[in-house]
Amino acid sequence: MALSNRRTALRTLAAGAVGAATSATWVESLSALASQQAHAHAAQAAVGAQKWTPRVLNAKQNAMVVVFTELIIPETDTPGAKAALVNRFIDAVLHAAPPADRAAFLRGLAWMNERSQTVYEKDFVSASVADRTALLATLAHEKNEAVEDRLGVEFFRAIKSMTIDGYYTSEIGLRRELGDNGQLFFAQFDGCDHPEHQG
């Protein structure tokens, strides 16, 4: 399975290179890196360590990432991205990312704040839930090709992809949300039981 994912990552990178018109390479590249790191993340219980200081994000950026990821995967009948500490995962991916991709991501965050200021006269974290959701909805709109939104649209795709990897490889995401109890093994393999294939 890990092999399959490595191959998928290769493909994602290749697709990024070909489809540059529709998707910026940094988005694909961060996305592929997040998929790779997710495996380590799944195996690593220390994500929830009490003491944690971000290595890339400053306090403001971190707060924004927390809000953002929770908007993407919110608390429902199970906890959301915030409780799963997806911000820490994203910080780790950014830390491992090439400097240019990291910078693009941080530019995306800044862009979101500016846009929020322009439209709602508040920065993103202080805007109302309804306003933030509305802002995200424009960026998430599949047909949004407005040039002035381009960075925002790319940024949304990058952070969504990283959030999905981080959340669903956390204990909360994997076990509580997806109902995967990690019991992979079979007592034995009995072989095929289709009657037409016997004898």
Binding site: N5, A38, A42, I164, Y167, G173, L174, D180
Partner: peptide, 12 residues
């Protein structure tokens, strides 16, 4: 069936 590593790759 279910993917071993997190959500299925089509989620994104």
């Amino acid at each position: 069936g279910a993917s071993v590593y997190g959500a299925h790759p089509g989620s994104k």
